[in-house]
Design a protein around this nucleic acid. Structure first.
Length: 739
RNA sequence: GCCGGGAUGGCGGAAUCGGUAGACGCAGCGGACUCAAAAUCCGCCGCCCUUAAAAGCGUGGGGGUUCGAGUCCCCCUCCCGGCACCA
């Protein structure tokens, strides 16, 4: 329904898209199958193919999507997001300010019409180097390339080669930069010079106008290209004190900050920004160009040639074209009895699904078999969760109550795609009047990946099968590194593929249920929390889980011990100062770490508390009361991590009778009085090297500390009579004597 | 290739703002208890030299800033994540 609304509003539209096509199996390949050497279909011949599909115009929202991650002044700024995620999204959106201008030509197609009105448009961020242009390069799919290829077999073959090898950014970037002259020339807009047009495999049709100006002297890629094909290199900017040579690239050739134009007529002497402005002005006078912002972000192609996914509610009629499914016929429901066999989308063979009457003219028509990217579903599931029982509408007022979400948690692998799509989708729903939120997620915690070893081998059929780490024994090399592995079952050899993200397809996942079965849920939770901070990448290893289990047994045992210590009401809890100081200091740290979601040190803090409690002398005056206070702090601290055992102890030991259920108990407060100390230990450094420690009164001033330092035995020993040049005192921490 | 992140003992990790590197735990070693084992408890545990103490070295590698660098800056190596059709 929303998709049809988006079509109606022009946020969605149908156009052709380039996909990775397997010419042998005649199917669309997933990128994983193309990029990943471990994929089962890797090595397949891949070519680019243009097929129709539906796009969502995420680029219309580029400015707003960018502001919330890049501009702290923006009203929607995502201050609660990790810096690295904001930065990744900023780079992905890729706003780039520059100049778009045209080289003119009078190249005509077979019908005699001027190709692109006689203008070859390019985009550049370095318009100040425009006088250094010695060639232009266009994408293999560019109209000028197609035109030149007609009747030029060699060029046609080159363009055909460029069509092979996949469309992913990684592949394109790894390809060797190659080109071929088209034999065509265009006219430089300022000098009137003839400039040769090349086809370059590194020029992307999807960015800017699919053409670039070539300035070999001041762009590293153009420099390499020009050296390879012996194109002229013309220096047009200079940096004081640097000498230019066409022999090798130097970083300053591309410098913006210090660059000054030379060999550029009226631009000479201008720095970067002024020169760009001047060039834009000169081009504007001729009607050939202007300053322009270009984005790296592309529209979101949502069509997938897959069985799974939300159906695209369109019916194709020979007479009426692409007709939306009428609202009363929604939702389009997929048949659930088809079996994907790897030969393409099985929906296409399903007559019951495909054959329908055109809603407009009633003639027999064909239902769209493409389904939507599953990112579509993940872009709004969280809003639907707030009102999942509403059968009449997508969302209702409850969504406005809950959104934006206070805290979202997800893997760092979603930093760009899912989190950008969900942001876009929320804004679309807002603009269609469905929700009020501008942004879906106020705070974001990105979990690190949990990695595990990957074992695989090729099957005789040419595929790859993966083995579960528990089913193999490692074979170590001389350095003790894993070199290969053997199947436990039959000893046969298996290849070791390093570590990587746990995934079903690589068969290297771990089910937490195993730990729960062996040790219980509290131990499984405690161990997982303790292993690493949530943002960190972690190589999975549960060898230490026994330690977590042991700790919980000690907590339980201490609870039993406490039960036998009945404090008399008269005892003052303040007496055992050392224990209370230790507990409240640790509580301070734990509270801080909870706030920053560093749960591993929350657990280690709880362990410290138990160590302190266990080490206390129960016979000391006031101790039973202090222990009871301290254990109450420990239980509340640990409750979010191990709810079951702490809840039971809270109940059994009578805390609940006095303070209510643990579920409702407030977070324990640090008692400032417990932290107070009369003396403090300062580290003593001589020339920045640690040489000892000083006990000084907590309120000692700078000169008293200095005096104590100079009077110390360590000073006498390590200063060896040298004169004191400086004394640095860091209150509460250290004193450093420089001699 | 590009973007982002990471590298600290045998292992997972700690060090909040540039101020005691190795908290807490695992593994290991020694001991107590036990007929014995398990469980539990106590002690040791970065490297090097050493009977010991003291000194020296030490946060992936190289350089720099600073009284002082795991932390900041520059260069490099390796590993992980993403690169738009795995989701």
């Amino acid at each position: 329904w929303l998709f049809l609304k988006m079509l109606e509003k022009g946020i969605a539209e149908r156009r052709t898209q380039v996909v990775n096509w397997d010419p042998v199996d005649q199917t669309v390949l997933a990128n994983e199958q193309v990029i990943d050497g471990r994929g089962w279909r890797s090595g397949a011949v891949v070519e680019k193919r243009e097929i129709p599909g539906y796009y969502l115009k995420i680029t219309d929202y580029a400015e707003e999507l960018l502001a919330a991650v890049a501009d702290p002044e923006s009203k929607n700024y995502l201050a609660g997001w990790p810096e690295r995620v904001r930065l990744m999204q900023e780079n992905w959106i890729g706003k780039s300010a520059g100049v778009r201008f045209a080289f003119t030509h009078d190249i005509r197609d077979a019908q005699g019409a001027l190709i692109q009105d006689g203008r070859l448009y390019v985009f550049t961020t370095r318009a100040d180097t425009i006088m250094g242009v010695t060639f232009c390069a266009v994408a293999p799919e560019h109209p000028l390339a197609a035109h030149a290829a007609a009747g030029h077999a060699e060029l046609a073959a080159f363009i055909e080669r460029c069509r092979q090898g996949g469309t992913t950014e990684a592949e394109l970037a790894l390809k060797e930069k190659e080109g071929m002259p088209t034999g065509l020339f265009v006219t430089h807009p300022l000098t009137g010079e003839k400039v040769p047009v090349w086809v370059g495999n590194y020029v992307l049709m999807s960015y800017g106008d699919g053409a670039v100006m070539g300035v070999p002297a001041h762009d590293e890629r153009d420099f390499a290209f020009a050296r390879k094909y012996a194109l002229p290199i013309r220096q047009v900017i200079a940096v004081e004190g640097e000498a230019f040579s066409t022999d090798a690239w130097a970083d300053w050739y591309g410098d913006k900050q210090r660059a000054v134009c030379i060999n550029s007529g009226e631009l000479d002497g201008l720095p970067h920004k002024a020169a760009v402005d001047k060039v834009a002005e000169l081009l504007a006078i001729r009607g050939l160009g202007e300053q322009k912002t270009t984005w790296r972000l592309r529209d979101w192609g949502v069509s997938r040639q897959r069985y799974w996914g939300t159906p695209i509610p369109i019916i194709h009629c020979d007479d009426c074209g692409a007709v939306p499914v009428p609202e009363q016929d929604l939702p389009v429901v997929l048949p659930n009895n088809l079996i994907p066999d790897g030969s393409g989308n099985p929906l296409q063979q399903c007559a019951a699904f495909v054959d329908v009457a055109c809603p407009q003219c009633g003639k027999s028509a064909r239902r769209e078999t493409d389904t939507m990217d599953t990112f579509v579903d993940s872009s709004w599931y969280f809003m639907r969760y707030t009102c999942a029982d509403n059968q009449a509408a997508m969302v209702d007022a409850r969504t406005d109550y809950w959104m934006p979400m206070d805290q979202y948690i997800g893997g760092i692998e979603h930093a760009i795609l899912h989190l950008l799509y969900a942001r876009f989708w929320t804004k679309v729903m807002r603009d269609l009047g469905l929700v009020k939120a501008d942004e879906p997620f106020k705070r974001l915690l990105t979990q690190g990946m949990v990695l595990n070893h990957i074992y695989s081998r090729k099957t005789p059929q040419g595929g790859i099968e993966y083995f579960w780490p528990h089913d193999v024994d490692n074979v170590l090399d001389a350095q003790g590194k894993i070199a290969a592995a053997r199947l436990k079952a039959d000893g046969s050899a298996v290849d070791y593929g390093g570590v990587g993200t746990m995934s079903k397809s690589k068969n290297n996942g771990v089910d937490p249920q195993d730990l729960i079965d062996r040790f219980g849920a509290d131990t499984a939770r405690l161990f997982t929390m303790f292993a690493a901070p949530p943002e960190a990448t972690l190589e999975w290893n549960d060898a230490a889980v026994e330690g977590s289990h042991r700790f919980l047994k000690r907590v339980w045992a201490f609870g039993l011990k406490l039960q036998d210590l009945s404090p008399s009401a008269a005892e003052p809890a303040e007496a055992p100062g050392k224990l209370r100081r230790e507990l409240h200091q640790t509580l301070q740290q734990v509270s801080f770490d909870y706030g920053r979601m560093q749960y591993n040190t929350v657990v280690s803090g709880a362990m410290k508390m138990l160590n302190a409690l266990e080490g206390a002398d129960t016979a000391a005056p006031g101790m039973p009361a202090a222990l009871r206070e301290g254990f109450g702090i420990l239980l509340r601290t640990l409750y979010p991590v191990t709810p079951h055992i702490t809840h039971a102890l809270w109940q059994e030991l009578g805390y609940a009778a006095q303070q209510g259920d643990l579920l409702d108990a407030p977070w324990p407060q640090v008692d400032p009085a417990a932290l107070r100390q009369d003396t403090v230990e300062l580290m003593l450094q001589i020339n920045g090297k640690l040489r000892g420690a000083l006990q000084v009164p907590t309120n000692a001033d700078q000169s008293a500390i200095e005096a104590a330092a100079l009077a110390s035995a360590e000073f006498t020993r390590f200063a060896e009579g040298r004169a004191v040049k400086k004394v640095v005192v860091v209150p509460g921490r250290l004193v450093n004597v420089v001699v």
